[in-house]
Each structure stands twice: as C-alpha cells, then as structure tokens.
Design a protein around this nucleic acid. Sequence first.
DNA 1: ATGAAAGCGCTAACAT
DNA 2: ATGTTAGCGCTTTCAT
Lengths: 351, 351
Amino acid sequence: MNSRVIAQLAGVSQATVSRVLNNRTNVSPQTRERVLQVIEALNYTPNVLARSLATRKTNTIGLVVANIKNPFFAEIVESITNIAASQGMNIILCSTSQDHRLQRQHVRMLIEHRVQGIIMTSVMLDDSYIRTLVPNGFPVVLVNRYLPGVPADSVVIDNYSGAYEATRHFIRLGHATVGYVRGVRNTSTNRDRERGYREALNQAGIPVRRGWIFDGHYSWQGGYNAGLRFLRLRHRPTAMLCADDLTAIGFIDALYDRGLRVPDAVAVIGFDDVQEASYRPIGLTTVRQPVTAMAEAAMRLLLDRIGGYCGDPRQIVLPAELVIRKSCGANPLWYLARGEETLVADAVPVN
Amino acid sequence: MNSRVIAQLAGVSQATVSRVLNNRTNVSPQTRERVLQVIEALNYTPNVLARSLATRKTNTIGLVVANIKNPFFAEIVESITNIAASQGMNIILCSTSQDHRLQRQHVRMLIEHRVQGIIMTSVMLDDSYIRTLVPNGFPVVLVNRYLPGVPADSVVIDNYSGAYEATRHFIRLGHATVGYVRGVRNTSTNRDRERGYREALNQAGIPVRRGWIFDGHYSWQGGYNAGLRFLRLRHRPTAMLCADDLTAIGFIDALYDRGLRVPDAVAVIGFDDVQEASYRPIGLTTVRQPVTAMAEAAMRLLLDRIGGYCGDPRQIVLPAELVIRKSCGANPLWYLARGEETLVADAVPVN
DNA sequence: ATGAAAGCGCTAACAT
DNA sequence: ATGTTAGCGCTTTCAT
C-alpha cells in the first residue's frame, strides 16, 4: 500500500498526502483531517526507503563495535542508540569480532545503505582503508580507539596517563615488580596503555621484564590464559596491570581456580570500569572510561559533520580516572595515613 | 554518483551495469570487465535503498531488545547479528528500556523501514498491539518472552520448570524457607518463574510467605534494593531465588556491603547463566538459558516466515538447565553422598 | 490550497 | 548479449 491509494480514497492528489505526512502548512484543515482518517483506517505506514531516495537523507548512522558481549561496548551501544533515538536517528549495528575483513565488509554495507555517518569503536592500527573515507568528506568518528595519521574526528580517554597512574599507584603501594596483560596488540588503546605502564616503571627506575608481560585479547579467556602462564612463573611480580576489566577478571579467575586470591596473592588493576568491576566479590580497581561522556562527544562530532561542518579533524581526549576498590590491595587507612582522600568507589545506593 | 554515470563511462546501458552488479550471466566477459573497472576507478557503491525499492526486499530485519547492557540481551544480540550477517541480512537494533511507548515507536520505525521481519525479545504482557501485526502476516518472532493468546512464533525456555527445579534444589539441600526476587512483573518470564517457585514450595508443603517475595526489575539495582529490604526482615529465609543473574548479583552485593557472604548467610540461585555468573568470586548457581540455540531457533522461524511459510504459529520451548556453582551452598560431597553426578560447572579451560 | 509532472537510483520485463 | 522502458513510493518544483 502506498500514498497513491491513500490519495485516491481521500479524493486528493498524492502530493497532498505527502504534504500531510510531512506536516506542511499549506493544506486545509478539512483536507488534512480527511487524509489522516484514511491513513488511520488503512493503517498506512509511509515507506522510508522511498523517502530517503527522494530526499537523499536516510537519518541513519552506522555503529561498528568489536564485540557487543564486552560490557564496555555494550554500554557504548546503549548510550549511542539512546542519543540517536532522541535525535530521530536510526542505528544500524555491526559487530566485527575483531576481524578486519568483516569490518571492511560492514563498512561497505553501511555505505551501500547510505548511512549519513559512521561511528567506529574498534579500528585496528592497520585499518588504514578508513583513510579513504575521510578525505572524501564522509563523516566518520572514531571512539575508544584512534588511528594515528588518519585525519578523522576521534574521542578517546588519555590511556597513556591512565596506565601510567595505575602503575604509579602500584609503585606507591610498595610494589617493585609489576606485570602487564596486553589487549589486542595493534590497537591504539593497548599501545598507549602499554607505553604508560612501561614509562611509569622506567621513571621509577624499575626494569621492565619481558616475562612479566603477557598477551591477551581484551577478553576473559585472554586474561585467564595469562593467569595460567603467570602461575608457571618462577618469580612472579606482585602486581599486574590488565589491559581491560574483562582481562583482569579472567586473570583473577585463573588464580582463583588454583586457590589463590586477589589481592592477597597479587594486586590487580583493570581498565574501563564496567559494571562488573564494581560487583562486590570482585571489587576491581580500574581506570574508568566515562562511557556516556564519550558517546555524547562522539555523537556531537558526528552530527556536526553530518550538519555540514568540514573543519579540521577534532580529537577529543577525556581524562582517565583511577577508581580504587579492593583488588589493588589498597587499604583506606593507607590513604588516610598519607593525608589523602580515599578514592574508594561505590557509595552504597539507597533505593 | 549512480549506475547511470558508470554506464556512460563504460559505454554501455545502465541495465548492463545493473546486470554486472547482480552477477547476471548474460553479459560478456569483456563488457563485465570494462564495467567493473569503471566501478573500481570511481569507487562506486550501489544504492541499496533504490534496489530495495525496486525489488521490494530490504534484506533487513529488526531486533528489539529491552536493554543491551543486560549481558543476557547482549548475548542474544551478538548471536542474532552473527547469524544474520552470515545470511546476508542486516540488523536494525532498538533498545526499549522496558518502555511501552518507546517500543511501539520502534516497531513503527522498523515497519517504515520495511524490515522483512522483527525479532522481539522484550514484549510485556500488555503489548497486545503486536497482535495486529501477526494476523496481517507480518513475520514476527518473540524470543525469551512470549504473549499468551497472541498467535506469533516464539522461542522460550521452560521457565516454569527451571524455577521449579531451582526451588526443589533448595529444598533438597534442606532449606525450608525460600524467598524470591521478581523480575519485571508483566512479563511471561517472571510470571512463569514465579509460578514455578510457588508450585515447588506448595508441593513440598512449605507455605509461601508474601514478605519473602520482593520486587525487582531484572537489574542489578533491583536486586540490590531487594537485598536491603531482605536485611531488614525479622525472620529471613535461608535461600533466595532471583529472577535473573543481574538481580542475583545485586542481591549478593547488598549483603556483601553489610558484611554478609553468600552462601554462608543465604543461598542464592539466579536465572540466565550469563558469563558474569561464572566469574569465580561470584560463582552463581543459576538456570541456564541456551542463548545461542535460542537465537538460532528464532532466526530459523523468522527466515521461514520471510520465505513465505504461513502455517500455524510455532512455539519452541527449550529445556532449562540448572548450573550448580557455589552460591547455592551445594557441596560436591553432598551430591556424591547421594550418588548423583556433580553438576558443577566451569571446567577449567586450558589455553 | 491543490494538482501535475519530473525525478531519486535501482530492477525487471520486453525487445532486439 | 545488450538496450529500452516502465515502474518501486516517495518529495519537490512549478502551475493553477
């Protein structure tokens, strides 16, 4: 069913139906009423595809994430879909499973769908094909991970400082041996975090030991495997920084399965501050990413571009914040003794 | 840019370009090659909207979930988008935040986009407007929650039995006092689970006490609040069934904040078996929903409908499975003594 | 205030 | 094997 049959039944031209649908003013109240009644009676719904074809606007944006099951991405998706909905924008969601080919395919699909812009949360450092989109003026915003050398808008937190501070925190707590579990290696996030970790050790005059850096993949399983390898170490570090919270939890679980507890056996800090980190039995100290603020910033950048803004790329870097819980072994008294405020998280919500 | 300019530059008709694009056989290799080269050179991408308009097929399906941040839904989204991608289908995702109006609005939007079918994971019992879609022959599949009286395809687990068995398990472990934290009340899932809980107590001759049933909303916060109210009880039950895992974790966290530990203070069982339930420090006993199987079944039903199948609605009910961890206070020895296999979950993954 | 007509970029007969 | 033509269901001038 289409607007033409509505027109016929209402005894008007199809153009008039279109005017009613779009709330144009130049249509008499009686006519409008009549048209609306027919629409109602037939339960007619306009075809957005045809409209988009005619207007060359789809009001749709593409959202590409690595893995929706990672709660960090789930939170981003939630925030962005909410903002989009409130702006009358629709979202086409793609999950790439950290797969280059798949991601490229998805981007292609999005462009075929004539989305008005794309938000990508999961670019890898060698996804340089993105570079070809941007110079064409196609609106792209990178969130969470960025692409050095690619002139695209981006929103990230200061991962370097986040990791640096987390490692510093370990050192101040008295740890002279600190390890690291990596995330996906060819991502800006992992690169910056690993750099922050190394730099903090260097500046403290603590050598970085290769054997204390484990591979991971921003996943529970990656952290678990790292934990198993950690356990086989002759000399274990007393503290471990993990590339994200999921990794940290996997790491903790591996120790747990062998009867070791955190922070007694090892101190652990993660990255993201997903809700799981705050679950009390876990109590993960972590570097928070302000997801909502990131999503808002990303949507603002993207909508600016869609609105025609074509200035230089803007890079938004939000601050990282260390959220102290129990997994780092910090004791509130320790902070008190040093005259610092306790940074302890999770005030008890009252109803 | 459109296929017409490709045609011009390649010196062929636009119909031929279309043939190349659709891999039709009736086009000479040389022509095809020439066209492909122009396409490549101009980096041309066909317009799916126009194609859909012409073919009346969008290859797109709508997916409506309550809340992507709930890992159970995240897993459903992940599974369904993967299956869809493998079938060349695209997904438009909507998150309703348990809001009737919003959900209705989203469904309308999906129909405007001419999706070829809709998968809904979050219908509420009074979402009877769905009823109007189905008789029109529009493909709709309900997953997780169903709508009694609405003749739509659906995929659920046997929530009644799941809750019944979980409660039975408590009773067999010696608990004579068992409480329940609800999910969203006007959902089939909560209704069936609550019924299973009540029935198990009834059949054991244990009275159901109103004060031991708390409201929740399938959320951490709901569980946490229930936990706080639980703590104010004069006579507390010794075991609590929770409507989902998130609720259970919130409940556990509330107790934890007051210094009580699970299962020492109370035994707890959840529902879903999301990954969080298996995190070792939590170790939540729970009723598993086989998410992947549910997603596959749902997609199969939907694709059948899209393919033209128009038989009677099919209701698929998958079995629920109790996954034993430590939060219910079960001890492997206990099972051993009774000559039962231990059902304990989470075999240690080795790399 | 309303209608007629020309597109939007594609597919799908129908011709040749 | 290729071209011509008529839509798909809208929006948008341009008339009236």
